[in-house]
Computed example of a mutant assay.
Amino acid sequence: MPDIDPAKLAASRAAIELVRDGMRLGLGTGSTASIMVRELAAKVKAEGLSLRCAATSKATAELAESLGLRIETLDQIGWLDLTIDGADEVDSELNLIKGGGGAHLREKIVAMASDRMVVIADPGKVVQQLGAFHLPVEVLAFGFEATQELLRRALDDLGLGGKPVRPRRRGGDLAVTDEGNYILDLALDVIPDAPALARALAAIPGVVEHGLFLGICDMAIIGRADGSTITLGAGGAEEV
């Protein structure tokens, strides 16, 4: 498969080794997650597994169903055994920035409704400190301008004043999420205190959800170009 990133493929294959017959799975969104979904579908077909899957976006649901996976709503399933998803950044404490694909609201709901969340990524997503990747903040259309101003004031209070707050656009128009909301991308460069920022964002009425995933991920599988992986978890890093 010459068009598939070998690092993302290695991480995906390692993650689906965690899948067992009868599991209830959350399927993530993004370029790495799409590789995982394809690998999962092949595993299900080869081994005859029976799985119940909840998707974190319409795009993932459509891909999974086209490959023969059984997709249900999260409410139909009730609770998940495992969610496998990508990330835009992951640090050594397994804190994440997610939402480059604009699905972080559903991704966080699904991850929190799981016994375990496993992240799959390539080495470029591993960072010492979160923040180089823009932080997505999903906001309501109502009061859009006011919410931007409240965000700027919150950043000022945290010593992050002057950092750009950019409405995300697609084809010149404001990007709209699966839930019909807008996204503001915060170009912060570095986040000195992620928990404080998460609390400040959550306190703004127009904010629906942000892309900081703190204390949610249980394991990160980092694939490498040679097909090997490094697993980051509570016990540190383990090479496979």
Rank of each mutant, 00 (worst) to 15 (best):
G235Q: 15
A46W: 04
G236P: 12
A15H: 02
D88E: 10
L151E: 03
A11K: 05
Q148G: 15
A141T: 12
D178L: 04
L96D: 05
D226W: 11
Y182A: 12
A41C: 10
L18Q: 02
G161D: 09
S50M: 11
E17W: 02
T83G: 01
E93Y: 07
A33E: 00
L214C: 08
E47G: 13
P195R: 03
G172N: 11
T60G: 02
A225S: 14
C53G: 08
L96N: 10
A103D: 00
W79R: 14
G215E: 03
M112G: 15
V118N: 00
E138W: 02
R168S: 02
R116C: 09
E47S: 14
A113C: 15
L184S: 09
L232P: 04
G161A: 15
Y182S: 05
P167V: 00
I204P: 12
R106P: 03
G162R: 09
K43Y: 10
E62L: 09
M36N: 10
D173F: 00
L74A: 05
N95R: 15
L188M: 05
E239K: 13
E179V: 07
A202N: 12
A54E: 05
D157R: 14
A10I: 02
H104W: 09
V137A: 06
R166P: 02
A237T: 13
A121P: 01
A111F: 00
I216M: 07
R52H: 12
S12W: 09
T229F: 00
G227C: 12
A203M: 07
V208F: 06
L51F: 08
A113E: 15
K163I: 02
A14Q: 05
I16L: 10
A7F: 00
V240K: 13
D5Y: 01
G171W: 00
L105H: 12
L214R: 11
I221S: 04
G211H: 05
R168M: 02
A132H: 14
L174K: 12
P195N: 06
D91Q: 08
A59V: 08
A175M: 09
V118Y: 03
G28T: 00
T83I: 05
V137T: 11
L184M: 14
V44Y: 06
L40A: 10
P6S: 11
L212N: 03
I84M: 04
M112Q: 15
R170F: 00
V165D: 11
E239S: 13
G162M: 08
I77F: 13
K58H: 12
L212H: 07
D122Q: 09
P2R: 14
R52L: 12
P164F: 03
